[in-house]
Write a protein that binds this DNA or RNA. Structure first.
Lengths: 202, 202
DNA sequence: ATCCTCGCTTAACAGTGTTAAGCTGGGGAT
DNA sequence: ATCCCCAGCTTAACACTGTTAAGCGAGGAT
């Protein structure tokens, strides 16, 4: 057994990267259910089994990609927070970006925020499988808190924050699910949904 | 060829009804993807092929069930409209019921309003496969219109209505997707989301 | 008795996620 | 130089999935 001077971390192994790159592309183009392990394998020129040497199963592969999605969103949020004047401004900007990013990559949004997964159904591990998602959520939460009166209770903050998230998510989800319905001009929808939600903060 | 004095309409054929009843139950319990045609067949005591004599494919079967969902929602909406004093009252009641019904039957809600289907992606057949959905949508739309100033443009009405629907849908979708997350008291969330959206109507 | 039709089944095709078992080529040890 | 081992990959299979072509068999009509 040699000294383990592993400089390259396992997530950057060429083959693992190759799989993730191909999977990201295919998932984005066709959606989760439409991409089979076999198709993925042939596009990278390996046998299906090879994928299973780097990922436990299809779900774990999907989870890696959702983490990327969360990372992207978190990155954008951090950027906005660092340049915004007021918390209210920051919040509205974050929500606008949220919708925009969702519409730019609808399949990623689906997988990240709309998918039926038993992972999210475990009671006592709310964000165990999704620390980046938790960070994201916390950023928004604390931003909402800053917009509220100092005396607000924790529950008030929680409910307000979640309500705003819900409204924003709803618009994105609707546009992602029914992309061809005549919803009206997207920028107006975004403005109305976000303004209604945020401006209702006391 | 006999005279076609068919009194019982085809949707009430015993076997077709049997299939739908079983499917509705299984879908509600396990979700769309988890119910296979074979499992459905064995639970009703027939071979899988038999189902295909009554439904073109799994998608058509699922569509029949979504129509039931839409019918239920529409029924509730009509009931509320017939007893409400003001349009604003009616609208808020409708939206509250919308969330409540969604949470009561999350799998039906998923299939009806959150599912990835190429059906909704056809450009010029917005509601062709879903007339009940259209009626539902129109009811809400006209209710929003009544809440607005007489001079409002069609686009304003459209955007306002869709924004309200989006916010409400967002809450339901979030609760359906992450049922075990600590969102806070559901009744408060409903109130906040719906009030923020509806009270923003000028 | 024959035929024919209707309701259903058998058996198969092509595809899915997943895994046990095996092959193979290159590097370290002898 | 030879051996051996093991990492990395593949083959082949299992148990599923949606779907369909072909066929069976009982009952009524002629």
């Amino acid at each position: 057994m040699s000294t383990q001077t592993t400089i390259i971390d396992s997530s950057q192994l060429p083959l693992k990267m190759l799989i993730l790159d191909a999977a990201r592309k295919l998932f984005a183009e066709h959606g989760y259910a439409q991409v089979s392990m076999r198709k993925l394998a042939t596009t990278i020129g390996y046998s299906p089994t090879t994928i299973y040497h780097h990922f436990k199963d299809k779900k774990e592969l999907f989870l890696c990609l959702t983490e990327e999605t969360y990372r992207d969103f978190l990155h954008a949020i951090n950027e906005i927070l660092s340049v915004s004047k007021s918390p209210r401004d920051a919040l509205k900007n974050i929500l606008h970006t949220f919708v925009t990013m969702g519409l730019e990559n609808p399949n990623a949004y689906r997988v990240g925020f709309m998918m039926e997964t038993d992972l999210w159904k475990v009671r006592d591990s709310q964000f165990e499988h999704n620390p980046l998602g938790k960070t994201m959520y916390d950023r928004i939460n604390s931003c909402v808190k800053k917009c509220m009166l100092p005396g607000s209770t924790d529950e008030d903050i929680l409910v307000t924050s979640n309500s705003i998230i819900a409204a924003t998510h709803g618009l994105t989800a609707l546009l992602v699910t029914y992309p061809n319905f005549e919803w009206g001009p997207v920028h107006k929808l975004k403005k109305q949904v976000i303004d209604s939600a945020v401006d209702s903060i006391v």
